[in-house]
């Protein structure tokens, strides 16, 4: 029915982004249905020592409230989660979050590779990974982990990115199923929503 080749057995969507991804994220969060059938797990590079403000800024236009999870918080469908400042965020078998203050990875904490890698391990082929605009290679390996476990990989069309280092890093490391503009990513997510309704 569609060129995205989706099914309704996915368990989660994970999104990574850095420099230049804010507008795209806002667009996505404001365009998804409020009863989205999966959890959306986001790891975005952010100022390490500014704890407040980001999640509020993302929530303003989002159809679903964005929250930063506590350590060991359960993951629920229809919720949007954001990795908190200065913590790495992982998903555990058993479908809950763990936070950690391990060393920075790719100069980042939270690091996208860590969130994506743990999601790949837990959700395997039932995961959709989306990597947006960004100025470093963080997330590239994470996308490879997702592909290696059979998940669906999506990156933002490099020409649309403010800085295309991140999606290009992923494209050079693994097979990317779909290279899409934000508007098409929104369409993909809405199509997914429809699949779960029927």
């Amino acid at each position: 029915m569609s060129k995205f080749n989706l099914h309704n057995r996915y368990k989660a969507v994970v999104i990574g982004g850095s420099a230049g991804s804010f507008q795209g994220i806002v667009k996505i969060l404001s365009s998804i249905p409020s009863n989205f059938p999966l959890p959306i797990i986001m790891c975005l590079h952010r100022l390490k020592h500014v704890r407040n403000g980001f999640v509020e800024a993302l929530s303003i236009k989002s159809t679903v409230e964005v929250t930063e999870p506590y350590d060991k918080q359960n993951i629920k469908k229809g919720h949007v989660y954001l990795a908190p400042a200065n913590y790495h965020m992982s998903v555990e078998l058993g479908n809950y979050f763990s936070l950690s203050t391990e060393e920075m990875v790719n100069n980042s904490r939270p690091a996208i590779d860590i969130t994506l890698g743990s999601c790949a391990y837990v959700y395997r082929n039932k995961l959709i990974g989306i990597l947006l605009s960004g100025a470093n290679k963080d997330g590239g390996l994470g996308m490879k982990y997702i592909k290696d476990k059979g998940g669906l990989t999506v990156v933002q069309e490099p020409t649309e990115c403010m800085i295309d280092t991140m999606p290009k890093a992923a494209m050079s490391l693994t097979t990317i199923d779909h290279v899409l503009r934000i508007e098409q990513i929104v369409r993909l997510l809405n199509e997914l929503h429809k699949l779960y309704k029927t």
Binding site: K72, H88, S90, V91, E92, L93, S98, S100, E102, I114, S118, Y121
Partner: peptide
């Protein structure tokens, strides 16, 4: 110990 970080260690 939490599995994800322990495994990375």
């Amino acid at each position: 110990y939490a599995m994800s970080s322990f495994k990375r260690r």
